[in-house]
Write a protein that binds this DNA or RNA. Structure first.
Lengths: 264, 264
DNA sequence: TTTTTCCGTTCGGTATTGCCGAACACCGTT
DNA sequence: AACGGTGTTCGGCAATACCGAACGGAAAAA
């Protein structure tokens, strides 16, 4: 049928698809008929699956109209997952402190074969303009955290990753060529922090720095996000030093070491 | 077999049980054999279910040893659910601001028939001692948010809720009798905020205040949590006023109204 | 080293069970 | 009153999810 892996359980896969549908669905929820139309399949089969998901709290129904919505168990599971993850548990207080100090939104990303996966976020006191999703593999070349991670890799790896993601353009300022990326990476290695100057979204500026495990391998990066107009060049440099300081603190608390990069 | 509802999908229920098992399981993960022993059932059946869950990102495996862990999709789903929930979306900036102003951990709970369900949390800059779980129905009489909600209900409702939860004792200071609860509620109505003075956990102090919808019905409450030793009586009163102020702000942004409680 | 034990994985056979479609009950509108 | 739209129930068929045994590998014990 679809591109399902082998040895899977079909009914479970369908159930998880329902969860994803409703989580990214409309805020007012969806009715059984709408859901059945979206995913295909008989109403009765969908109903049985929905009932199971509701019983477990993954979904909930509106009290009045029978519309289905994401349930509280999803919040609970996300919270527990974050609490059990050693990296998130250690990073969160650091993100909170950096957010207080800078007034910006701070995120932490894990290095997943050169790609950043944003695991946690602490918002600054201002309004949140763009909701940056968590738990997804993002593009490495258009985010400060992604570039901070890239700068810790070898040239061959960078080349392979650039090929893998195709250096897709997100805005007019996005880096789209390998040579420009190499140049940028060189700059990051010198300064110690990476920037994202409206390369992912217009008007948004980010500063990121990597952290390391006890082998000196890059585990991920933290980044601070704000609106471009709030930052002068002088402030960027200052913010960069601040982000590096907290990233180093995270390295320390993870019992990691920051190695000085050799000539090659 | 077990107390499963009717018209459910068994394989989906088993899959969700696996997720819950691993989310509350050991931090280093569990092997297939351990999981099969825990939940019962053949290894091959469990394996197929686990594969499905891993494919969807609900679980992940450790790179080296074949141990199963909670996956990043759970973080993503929790984040998306929070972003789509109107209450959480409105409340979060307020929680952030109050956390900055007070230096404490701020939480927001929804009123679920008199019981508080904590939906979101913004940590203060200090270390987090107790991880307060999100997304679960908590006891109403041992938390500041729960008591703030209770104080907005009628006497009959309070009696019914007290009966339902049994006024279980959590610490030596917990309220365990209906008359003491009535007295406490009266105090909360006068002062406008509720407290939790080591009634849920030793050494932990909370202050909570309710917020309302446009009918004046109590939608939930926000609360500030800190360590007892940091607060003098004078500071409690000041903190109470601050929490009320931000709860009122939340009421306002939800287009709600705070009604003055009548004589009865 | 050899042996043993435990792990994850594969593979058919069986019948459990989850899917379908039609029929039903319900509410709002036309 | 008749209609289109819900969510729901129920039987029947067959798809499919379970089981148990057997395999291959790796790690631990001897």
């Amino acid at each position: 049928m679809s591109d399902a892996g082998q040895g899977q359980v079909g009914s479970v896969a369908r159930a998880l698809r329902l969860v994803e549908l409703l989580v990214s669905g409309p805020a007012e929820g969806m009715t059984l008929a709408e859901i059945a139309k979206s995913v295909g399949g008989s109403k009765s089969a969908i109903l049985a699956t929905l009932r199971t998901l509701v019983d477990f709290g993954y979904l909930r129904t509106t009290e009045a109209g029978p519309r289905y919505l994401p349930g509280m168990m999803l919040i609970r599971l996300g919270d527990l997952t974050a609490a059990h993850d050693p990296l998130i548990a250690v990073a969160r207080p650091i993100l909170t402190q950096l957010s207080e100090k800078s007034g910006l939104t701070i995120r932490v990303a894990r290095n997943d074969s050169g790609f950043p996966i944003f695991l946690d976020r602490v918002d600054g006191p201002g309004f949140v303009r763009f909701h940056t999703p968590l738990g997804v593999r993002e593009l490495p070349h258009v985010s400060a955290a992604g570039k901070a991670i890239l700068a810790q890799l070898g040239d061959e790896e960078i080349k392979a990753i650039a090929k893998e993601c195709g250096l897709v353009s997100r805005t007019k300022k996005s880096i789209t060529t390998l040579s420009a990326l190499r140049q940028e990476v060189e700059r990051i290695r010198e300064e110690g922090f990476a920037t994202d100057d409206e390369e992912d979204a217009q008007g948004i500026f980010c500063v990121g720095a990597a952290f390391f495990d006890h082998f000196g391998k890059c585990l991920g990066a933290i980044s601070a996000t704000g609106v471009k107009t709030d930052l002068s060049d002088d402030q960027v440099s200052k913010l960069g030093k601040l982000v590096i300081k907290y990233a180093d603190q995270l390295t320390k608390e993870l019992h990691g070491r920051k190695l000085v990069r050799g000539a090659k």
